[in-house]
């Protein structure tokens, strides 16, 4: 798994809980190092061990951990740069949803060895969408749920999300847009730069 993803999970634990909790996680997972490097690549098992360790220490299911990581990635000030990169995808939440198909390509443009799972959005009506995550690591859909929930918040949209399972390397998220301009949303200034 790419170091950026592992590093994101590490930052999630450190920023949401504490560095002590993160060190507990590394011990629990049996890692022989205490931090991931964002620009290196790690075996996929390492990521699984870390997620399992977080779940055990925080008494949360794997799905809950992954959704929390997704929410953190968009909403925490320490990862503002990522929120901004996602906001470049669209001017409103629906526009953003339509940009998800190209998310893996966008990620590759930034970091050419970062492989994100494929994503396919279907629009069933103006309010109902489904997002299929293809060939992602198990539970990726839950992380995506967290990201979508936080992005909806960021755009000021009110949405209802449901993970409707999947199978054979597929996870499907049902998205219902209840109101696109429910709240003010957070500002996005094209020319500003995340510090």
């Amino acid at each position: 798994m790419h170091g950026l993803i592992n590093r994101a999970i590490q930052c999630f634990v450190r920023d949401t809980y504490s560095n002590e909790v993160w060190l507990d996680v590394t011990r629990f997972a049996g890692l022989d190092f205490t931090g991931f490097e964002a620009m290196l690549t790690y075996e996929a098992e390492v990521t699984d061990l870390v997620i399992a360790a977080i779940g055990s220490i925080l008494s949360k299911s794997r799905e809950e951990v992954l959704e929390d990581v997704g929410t953190y990635l968009v909403s925490h000030p320490n990862v503002e740069a990522l929120r901004r990169l996602l906001r470049f995808g669209g001017v409103d939440f629906v526009d953003f949803l339509h940009s998800l198909d190209e998310l893996p390509d966008r990620a590759r443009l930034a970091v050419d060895d970062l492989d994100l799972p494929g994503m396919a959005l279907r629009e069933h009506s103006h309010e109902r969408f489904s997002l299929t995550c293809i060939d992602g690591p198990p539970g990726f859909g839950h992380a995506m749920m967290g990201i979508l929930r936080a992005m909806a918040d960021d755009y000021g949209a009110l949405v209802y999300l449901e993970h409707s399972g999947g199978g054979a390397g597929r996870e499907v998220i049902e998205i219902t847009l209840i109101e696109s301009e429910f709240a003010e949303g957070r500002e996005f200034d094209l020319g500003a730069r995340a510090g």
């Binding site: 740069a81 901004r84 470049f88 966008r106 443009l109 930034a110 970091v111 094209l190 730069r193 995340a194």
Partner: peptide
């Protein structure tokens, strides 16, 4: 897209 790329590359 270009602005996206500039920010993404700076972050990387």
């Amino acid at each position: 897209e270009m602005l996206y790329l500039v920010e993404a590359k700076s972050a990387a």
